[in-house]
Design a protein around this nucleic acid. Structure first.
Lengths: 235, 235
DNA sequence: CACGCCGTGCCGTGTGATGGCACGGAGGTG
DNA sequence: CACCTCCGTGCCATCACACGGCACGGCGTG
C-alpha cells in the first residue's frame, strides 16, 4: 500500500507547511508532482484537506484530524482538565498531561502559568522516558529493560544502574522529578496515573531557577495527589 | 486511490471503536476482512495506529492525528487560550472557540464552567451556521447566499429574510446570540475574530435557564471585547 | 519575447491491491 | 469430548489502477 503511505506523508507535509501548493510538497517529499497531485485530490475527496483561503491551489488540513485525534484521548482529557486546573491554581505553574507511546511520552494537554517566564512545549511534543519527569514517572511503573540512554545535558542519567535506582526512588517517593536532565534550564515533578498500568502522567514544570527544594517537595505531593484523583475518576 | 479512501475510513472507524479488531471493523465498514487487514497493517507501518494494551489484535490510534491536527490551529489555539481564560473568569461560564469550516463551525477548544449544570460539547463538534451563536457571528461577516435553513427547535430562524435581518443586527450589535435555536435549552452569545475575514469565533454558552437579558447584554460586551483582543494578538 | 515555474491532465506500463478462500486457534455449548 | 462458531492471518490469480514521465497553458519576471 505504497500509495497510502505516500498520501499520509503528503497529509503530514501539508500540516507542516500549510497553506502549500503541489510543487513545494513534491520537492519537500522527493516525490513526483503527479503522485502528490493525486494524493491531494484523494485527500480532498476524503475530506482531510481543503483549498486554503480562496486559492484553489493552496491546501490546508481540515478538522478531520482533530475529530480523529480527540476521539482517542477524549475521556482522558475531559477527566483530566478539571484536575489540572486545580493543580495549576494550587501551584501557579504550568501543568502538563502526557501519555506513554512507544519509547517516549507525548504531550496531550497543557495549562500554562501566568508568570512571564514559562515553559511552552507544543502539543504533540515527545519527550524521552529516561530524561523527563513524566517519562520517569511512567517508566517506574513499567517493567522494561533499559536500553541505551542518550544524554541531553550534564545531569541526564545515562547509566542504566543509576536509572534503575532512581526509578526505585520514584516509586518510594510517589513522584518523579527532573533536574535539568533534558534541557538544563527546565525542572519538573510528575506522577503517573495508574489504571492500574501507567496510562498517563501529570506534571508541574517550571524554569530551573524557580524550583527550590522546598517547592519540589510541595509540588511533588500535590502532583501525586492530583494523579491519584484522576486515576479514581477514570475508575 | 480507492485504497487510500479505504485506509482513511478504517482509521476513522478505529478512532470510533477503539480498541477494536479486524472483524468488527470489516463488518462496520462493509469491507472484506482482507482489505481491512491490509489497511491496518499499512496504517501501523505509517505510525497512525498501534496495537492496544498488550493485545496484538486490538488496535487504537496513536498521537499522530493529534500532531497533525494541532499543527493546523496551533497559533490560533495558543493565542486564544489565555483570552478564553480571562473571559471565563469574568463570566464564570463555559467558553468555546470555534472555526468556520464549510457550512458549519467546528469546536476547537473549550473551557468549562465550574457550575454543576453546564454545556458539554465534544471537541470537533460541528454546529450549523444559521442556528448557533458562533455560526451567526461568523456568517454575519461572510457574504454568502443563505441556502435552505433546516429547523432544529421552534426558535430556529428558517426564513432567509429573517436571518438576513438578524445578521444585520449582529453586525450592529457586535455580537451574535442564540436563544435555543439549536437545542432549546442552550443559550449563548458569540463574537467573530476578524483577520480581517472571520477566522474564528468565541462564545459564552449557558443553560437557557441562566441566560437573563441582563446577562446576555453583559456577556455580549465581554465576548466582543475578547474577540477583538484575540484579533489583535493574531495581528 | 523568452524563460522558468506553476498547477493540471494524459497515457502506456506493470506493479500491487483486491477479495474469495482456507487454515489454525480460541472459546462456547451440549 | 466432539462440535460449532468466530476470530485473526495468509495465500493467490486476476486485472484495476497507481505510477511517473511528459506536454500543455497560464503567469510573473528579466
Amino acid at each position: 500500500m505504497q500509495n497510502v503511505i505516500n498520501a499520509l506523508r503528503v497529509l503530514e507535509e501539508v500540516a507542516d507547511r500549510q497553506p502549500v501548493g503541489v510543487g513545494e510538497l513534491a520537492r519537500g517529499l522527493g516525490l513526483p508532482k503527479s503522485t502528490v497531485q493525486r494524493s491531494l485530490k484523494t485527500l480532498h475527496e476524503a475530506g482531510w484537506i481543503r483549498p486554503a483561503g480562496g486559492e484553489v491551489t493552496r491546501w490546508q488540513v481540515t478538522s478531520k484530524a482533530l475529530q480523529v485525534a480527540r476521539r482517542t484521548e477524549l475521556g482522558l482529557r475531559d477527566a483530566a482538565v478539571p484536575v489540572m486546573e486545580e493543580l495549576r491554581q494550587r501551584t501557579g505553574e504550568t501543568i502538563h498531561l502526557m501519555v506513554p507511546e512507544g519509547d517516549a511520552v507525548v504531550l496531550i494537554e497543557r495549562l500554562e502559568t501566568d508568570k512571564p517566564l514559562r515553559i511552552v512545549l507544543p502539543l504533540g511534543t515527545r519527550l524521552p522516558l529516561h530524561a523527563s519527569a513524566n517519562g520517569k514517572a511512567v517508566l517506574a511503573h513499567l517493567d522494561r529493560p533499559l536500553g541505551d540512554l542518550p544524554g541531553y545535558t550534564d545531569t541526564t542519567i545515562t547509566d542504566p544502574r543509576a536509572l534503575r535506582a532512581e526509578l526505585d526512588a520514584v516509586l518510594a517517593r510517589g513522584y518523579a522529578d527532573n533536574r535539568g536532565e533534558w534541557r538544563s534550564d527546565i525542572a519538573a515533578v510528575a506522577a503517573a496515573v495508574l489504571a492500574p498500568g501507567p496510562v498517563a502522567s501529570l506534571s508541574v514544570s517550571t524554569p530551573a531557577s524557580r524550583m527550590t527544594e522546598e517547592l519540589r517537595a510541595e509540588y511533588g505531593k500535590l502532583v501525586a495527589g492530583a494523579a491519584r484523583t484522576l486515576a479514581e475518576l477514570l475508575n
